[in-house]
Simulated scan of single mutants.
Amino acid sequence: MDRLEAGWRQHVPAFLNAVSTVGAFGHELSRTRRELNELRELHEAATTNASRGLEDVRTELAQEVRTELAQSGESMRADLRSFVQRADGSIEKLWERIEFVRREIMFEMAYGGAATKRSDAKPAGRIINQPLIDEQRRAGHVRLNIGCGHIPLDGYINVDMRDLPGVDIVADVADIPVEPRSINEIFSAHLMEHFPQEEVRRRLLPYWRDLLVEGGTFRAIVPDGEAMLAGAAAGTYAFEDFREVLFGAQDYEGDFHFNMFTPASLSTLLQEAGFRDVVVPVKGRPNGKCFEFEIQAVRA
């Protein structure tokens, strides 16, 4: 018993101490396990969030790349369209220039330099009625009826390339034996359609303008292409009449038509030639087989 009591006294404290230490260790172990679990959960959450964030970044980057590619593609398409448009414009201008040069060459070949001003040319043609010319010069109001044909007008110096009754000057209407800036009025009826467009633009209108005094009047009556085309389209104007007016009766060498005008087109030609105050007092007026309009302008 003594040995038992001695052993108890010796070993019980150590046992109790060991038991308390195990409990503390167990408690510490449990706490450590909880902390480890919390750390693991935090790590898993962080990993999950990181994965989601990475996916979001990948998605955003992909979207940005697609947007950038789309914008770049649109920019490239816009640049390409702009380039094509510039190229088309350059080619169009080049063709316009080529056409302009071609027409200039053809005009020079056709008219032998007649595009130059003729104010220094020597008078040509033949004056038949000098007294009438002198009379009008003394009155200070010289009036020419050019291309009069068989219809000379009173009060005018009648000019035609043919020596017909009533003609006062036999001459080409582009080479009349009168001085520049000496005519107060030039009138023509159904004359201008007998000349090609470029000759009217480059030779005749500038030449007639040079004959007029400053403020002198130019008047013309020509077939009204606008009215005739409208009538032909509506079926109210006979085709044969239209054809004859369009191409001329062709009874003699000078009776061929090479041109057609509308009030607007002839107004433009007059303005280009240096005329102002262009007016069209009459248009669409019936005259035999054609419709005609009258136009007048003043030398600027």
Rank of each mutant, 00 (worst) to 15 (best):
M260L: 15
W208Q: 09
S267E: 02
Q130L: 13
M260R: 08
G7M: 11
A234H: 13
L61Y: 06
F275E: 04
Y111D: 06
H190G: 02
P263W: 01
L36Q: 05
T67C: 10
E272Q: 12
V222M: 07
A114N: 02
G89V: 05
M76C: 06
T48C: 05
V213K: 14
T48L: 08
Q250L: 08
E60Y: 10
L36M: 13
Q85Y: 09
V298W: 00
V22Q: 03
R276G: 01
V178K: 07
E104Q: 07
I176D: 11
N287A: 03
F187M: 04
P286R: 11
G274D: 06
Q63L: 13
T262L: 09
G26S: 04
M260G: 10
S265I: 01
V282E: 11
E44I: 03
F218L: 15
E44A: 04
A46I: 11
T59V: 14
F239I: 12
P223R: 08
V213D: 15
A300V: 10
D168E: 06
A174V: 06
I157R: 03
L36T: 03
G147S: 07
A233T: 12
A121N: 09
G235P: 09
L94K: 11
D172E: 15
V278F: 00
G73Q: 10
M161E: 08
L164C: 08
A230K: 05
P180T: 09
T268D: 15
Q296H: 00
E135T: 10
G274N: 09
S72P: 02
M260F: 13
M106T: 14
E135H: 12
D224V: 01
I169N: 06
H43Q: 10
Q296C: 00
Q250F: 13
E198Q: 12
E5F: 13
D88S: 12
V200N: 00
F15Y: 04
G216Y: 00
R126A: 05
R209N: 06
S267C: 04
R31H: 07
L36E: 10
V19M: 12
T32Y: 12
K122W: 03
R285A: 11
I127H: 06
E5I: 01
P196D: 15
R58Y: 13
G149Q: 08
E193Y: 04
R285H: 13
R66S: 15
R137Q: 13
R9Q: 14
V222P: 07
T236S: 12
L54N: 14
V298Q: 01
D255Q: 06
R243F: 15
L246C: 11
Y237G: 02
E226S: 12
V159C: 10
E96C: 11
Q136E: 06
S82T: 01
I151W: 14
